[in-house]
Amino acid sequence: MIFSLILGFLLLIIGLYGMLTQKNLIKIVIGFSIVDTGTHIIIVSIGYLSGKTAPILDSTVDLANAAKQVVDPIPSALVLTAIVIGLAVTALMLSFVIKLYQKNKSLSIDDYQELKW
């Protein structure tokens, strides 16, 4: 589906724009989440074959001819694990934000100049 592919790229660019322009640390994390979702949509829509069914071979799929009737299972498998990993990485970033806020009482990226050159 070309539309879902375009939607995925759109989300990716919106997320990158948010990450680059926002000053608030939590908004940067949200931008990362949007990039994550966009990538997932792109990967899944690459594996989509129009008019075919999910790769679960129960009684509705003719087993002798199964490879002709299902969509690509590999992108689904990749995205499945990536979603959970994305959740965990978001949690890690949010705990960095919590720690930074406790130390400097500020959520603005402008107050953290230590690594700036």
Partner: peptide, 24 residues
Amino acid sequence: KELSKLSSQYVEGSINDLNTQNVV
């Protein structure tokens, strides 16, 4: 329009070698 060779190998193997309904 068709599954790639590797993917169809996975689908066939899931039925014949592993007895698993869910290919993912």
